[in-house]
Amino acid sequence: MPIKWVLHWQPNAGHTVNSQILAEVSQCVESINGVKEGKWKATLSFYRPVMKEQANPAEFPRDFLGISLPEQPNKYYFVLRGQRLVVEADSTIQTIMEKLQSYKTRVALNFEGFQYQLGDFQLRVGKVVSIQSESLRGIVMEMEYKPISSWEKSHKIMGEFFDIWQEALSKRPLPGHFVHMEPNFGEFGLSGQYTLQHTAVQYATIMLQMIATAQSVRN
């Protein structure tokens, strides 16, 4: 499984994301000879416990994430960030969760956009939108390097490519930048060989960051 970095757009202080930024980012990928290939889409849902009135909320996780990825549409990933747990299951697990009625999905987000090919790299640029309101919540970018599946071995080449990308983007006056956050995969029990569970953990990590950013803007 090729290595992948999942990046998110961090707006400068006092700014928010907007569709103009997304358009500029997409143009920038094309300006460095990225060949547009097609659309992609991932989804992320927040599951929250259904509790009886007398329940102590501390008894249960406040929420956890359910993620579907375009590489394996028949699989589904659960991430409990606090407990450092990532679970891979068949997509039918969503039906099982519905039937149990102990946790419900409260917020669901789509990550969708276009995919580009750039030599051995595959780039995906996408908007983060709420399924309910379609409002733009953020911008994400996936950077995949096909020849390598070892997280450690890929670090140098991924870092170099990220620098080139940042430089290309810096030529446009955009109010923010892409951030790469590296989760501690070992804490989740994941090895250095890249899997889709690594991707799910990265999505959970950027989600946390995007929520923190949204909250700081609101405050």
Binding site: P49, E59, F60, P61, F64, F78, L80, Q83, L85, V86, V87, E88, A89, D90, S91, T92, I93, T95, I96, K99, S102, Y103, G189, Q197
Partner: peptide
């Protein structure tokens, strides 16, 4: 009767313990 199955990774038992 209704019956739904899903294959899962080995830590699925821990998941359900954590969920309550």
């Amino acid at each position: 009767r209704t019956m739904v199955e899903s294959k899962a990774s080995k830590n699925v038992l821990r998941l359900f313990y954590l969920l309550g």
